[in-house]
Simulated assay, not measured.
Amino acid sequence: MNTMNPMIRRACLPNKNNKVFDFLMYSGFAIPPSVDLPFKQLSNDGKEINISRSKKMDSQFFKQQDVRSGNYIDFLLKMTSLRDKQQPNVFRGTPLYINKNSKVAFGGCLIGQAASAAVCSVPQGQLLHSFHNSFLNAGRQGCIDYRVETVRNGRIYCNRIVHAEQNGKTILNMQVSFKKDEAEPFQHQRTMPDCKKPEELLSIEKLIEKKLSEDLSEEQDMFKDLHITDPVVEFRPVDEETLYRLKPLPPKSLLWMRITEKQGEDENFHRCAVATMSDCNMLSTVILPKENGLKRFRLASLNHSMWFHNNVRADDWLLYETESSYAGGGVGFCTGRLWTQDGVLAASVSQEGVVRSLL
């Protein structure tokens, strides 16, 4: 085991001297706000109406954690080694916060932690190459233990299996492949979609503020719930209608995203962070053909796979291209591609999940 790996954390223990860790949350990313969010609406005569709602969450949870504001993913991916003679590769993830509206952990957080645990078990120079993940049970608030099995240590490739365990249950199994860099002249890739650059687009926060200024009648409550922004990850939809979902759309989406705070140079950290973000906006692509789909379906991830093709930085803009080729029988399937701004295909993704009608 590489005991000097930067993703290994010394301890997962509370520190009473830590400052309060406050976050605003983008719905679906499960990062909690602990302040009142102001929601403002313009009446038909142009006057501003205060429709403020309390979004206070359990800030006491963050008082116990050694976390800098705006850097939740860095905190999330730290691992505590629980090594002993019987189990040399067991790691404990940092405590998960569960938003009160969702009650269970965001799947991307589990993916990121499981991949990070696997990273802690391989030698330096081995890069996260691919993983195939199955969600078995819901993650709850608190720490999760990750037991890493060594399947193979090869000259170029290493293989691991990760079992995530919490409260006596296995909640996730992940097969992980690592690979050293190789120089190979033969290569090809698809062409990046031609679309607006992130500098030309509005953030989700600005788009929701824009919608809240309109007279939306019954849709107003839905947009109030969306007006919860995560300062850790910024999202900018290419087509704002894929965010609003007020009319049927083709099951495909383009979304720019990045971590807002600059990170270090560790390539495996960036790949684990991108893996965390890859669960955002993925399964919801399946229900774009249905008007107001977010209110009409229950969604839950079943499995998630990812392949890294090139080096990537989570703190640079990435274009997330997602599409769904099938939905039926209570499940939906979608695929995705992550592009750098200069058109390099950084990673490919696939996901299957529960898609059940509520009406």
Rank of each mutant, 00 (worst) to 15 (best):
P231L: 06
L338C: 10
I51S: 11
L338Y: 09
D84G: 03
N153R: 07
M4V: 09
E240C: 06
N15E: 13
G168T: 07
N2F: 01
K252D: 11
P14E: 00
G70T: 12
E199S: 15
M4Y: 06
M222G: 01
F178N: 03
P32N: 12
N173V: 14
N99D: 12
L96D: 03
G264E: 03
F297T: 08
H304M: 08
T229M: 07
D279A: 05
K247S: 12
M306N: 01
C143N: 15
R9N: 05
R53A: 12
R245W: 00
T191E: 14
Q263F: 00
P32M: 04
I49T: 14
G336V: 00
E199M: 09
I259L: 15
D230W: 01
L202K: 15
P250D: 11
R190M: 13
L201S: 04
K169T: 00
L77E: 08
G168H: 04
A114E: 04
R160N: 05
P251R: 07
K85N: 13
Q64L: 14
G332M: 09
N173G: 01
Y72Q: 03
A114S: 15
T322F: 03
V148K: 08
P193H: 09
S348K: 07
T80L: 06
V148L: 13
S217P: 00
R53W: 11
S134C: 10
V354A: 04
L76I: 04
D239I: 03
I49K: 15
A346K: 02
C158W: 01
N44Q: 13
N268K: 10
Q175T: 11
L226D: 00
Q351R: 08
Y320S: 11
L254Y: 13
N71V: 07
F223S: 00
G93P: 06
S134R: 10
V35Y: 14
L288H: 14
P248Q: 11
V286F: 07
H227Y: 13
F269M: 06
V344H: 03
K100W: 03
V331P: 00
L77P: 12
R271Q: 06
K169F: 04
V355F: 03
M192S: 13
R337D: 04
F308R: 04
D181M: 10
I287A: 02
V312H: 03
E323I: 00
T340C: 02
D145W: 06
P198C: 10
I228G: 15
I204K: 11
V35W: 06
T242A: 08
E149N: 09
L201I: 04
E234L: 08
N99S: 14
I73V: 15
S350Q: 11
S325F: 11
S116R: 03
C334N: 12
N173K: 14
H132L: 05
S54P: 08
